[in-house]
Amino acid sequence: MTTTQAQEPSRDLHARREPGRTRRRPVSDPRARGRGRRRIGRWAQTLVVGALGLLWIYPLLWVLAASFKDSLDIFSGGLGLLPDSWHPENYLRAWRDANFSGYMMNTVLITAGSIVLVVVRCAMAGYVIARFRFLGRRVVLAVLVATMFIPTGLFVVPVVELSDLLGLLNTRTGLVLAIAGGGNVAAVLLYVGFFSRVPKELEEAAVMDGAGFLRVFFRVMLPLSGPVTATVVVLTFLSSWNNFFLPLVFTFSTPQNRTLAVGMMAFQGTNSTDWAGLAAAASISLVPIVLLFLLLQRYFVEGIAGAVKN
């Protein structure tokens, strides 16, 4: 079953070859009419789902709009989008005064570090677990699965103690390790599942060519795992981009290392909240993720196609 799937080009690519597909069918009037109806049906679907989607995203569009309003306008304007007057200086306040430029840099570094670490370590572990029998394999798997459901809310306490012991507290390295080190069981299991289904011929061919263990993994297996990696990247991205507690604790004495999520805190004061600044800050931290998703979404599809060709 795996192989059948593997030979199946992705649907999006297929779509572009539409004419080729229709050739298989005799061109007859009723079918053509059916297609026309179907096209209308699709537009109707788009309309319905689109309306739902708009409703779905409206609150966040409102945040985007709020980032251009002043605080009173946010509250008195109800859910209207257009500001009474434009206040782009909210962004200036967030970017410069609240140091979101620095926070952005930190967040990008920390997220990138976490992603690299998670992908590499989970792929390596998933690979050997999937393709080799070795002593302790079952134990490793059992421990991984068992810890999936443990509530992690309190882990921050021992993690801080441990990091302090190792001299990793207050360092970005320590923070990356803490974010990427724990959990991520799902990522390991994703790789296990993927690698256990890669046809053995690929590996054998590489070995025949004289490739060693490392070469087989890095040159053959890891590149094949594109789609899983994309998924893992997205999941890791989500968890580390918005992670709050660990970055908070790891930047107590080093405020210049703070991340966007922690920096957001600065807008909520004792007696007042700078809602407009907060909205601007939220928009700043949201836009990169949306872009990344739009990009990776394409990668999902092409990744499969690529994996299939090899």
Partner: peptide, 21 residues
Amino acid sequence: ALFAAGAALPVSGCARSSTRG
């Protein structure tokens, strides 16, 4: 430091990005 850590994981406390608190 992050990439070093990610690639090979010989992590020591070398990558402090600022004075230790």
